[in-house]
């Protein structure tokens, strides 16, 4: 087990950690979503990389092909990419609405404004 033989795993773990770190430490809501995107993308690599064999081809039944790559992980990740896009789109849509309602996309400022709302009895409705 050398660094090179498990290269894709090392990259996967690195990207997972980078993504999670951004989600945890950034206060900007858009940057958090970027971190989440990196976190999800790392998983695509975890699935896709082991499916590829060196010298493997697409699974075509025929005399001249002997080594096949597994196509299933790719198909799975196609689905996961769709899910990831939907999540990111929804997250960004929420950020737009938050910006409209609060006037900021900084988490600390939003939490501060919420804390102020909690102390005053009448909290303002978001659309009135």
């Amino acid at each position: 087990m050398t660094l090179a033989s498990h290269f894709s795993y090392w990259v996967t773990v690195l990207l997972l950690m980078v993504g999670l770190f951004i989600v945890m430490t950034r206060e900007n809501l858009v940057k958090k979503l970027i971190g989440l995107g990196i976190f999800q993308t790392a998983v695509y690599l975890l699935y896709v990389a082991p499916g590829k064999l060196v010298g493997g081809v697409a699974p075509i039944i025929g005399g001249e092909f002997a080594v096949y790559s597994n196509p299933l992980p790719h198909v799975l990740i196609l689905t996961a990419i769709v899910v990831g896009v939907a999540t990111l789109a929804l997250g960004l849509a929420l950020v737009v609405r938050i910006k409209e309602a609060y006037g900021t996309i900084d988490e600390d400022e939003i939490l501060l404004m919420d804390a102020r709302d909690d102390t005053s009895p009448e909290s303002e409705a978001k659309d009135g």
Binding site: V23, L29, K32, L36, T87, L90, G91, L94, V95, R97, I98, A101, Y102, I110, D114, D117, S123, E124, A125, K126
Partner: peptide
């Protein structure tokens, strides 16, 4: 309540 948006965002993460 506008806090619903933040709650949804946090749940999304």
């Amino acid at each position: 309540d506008r806090r619903a948006l933040v709650a949804a965002y946090q749940y999304l993460l």
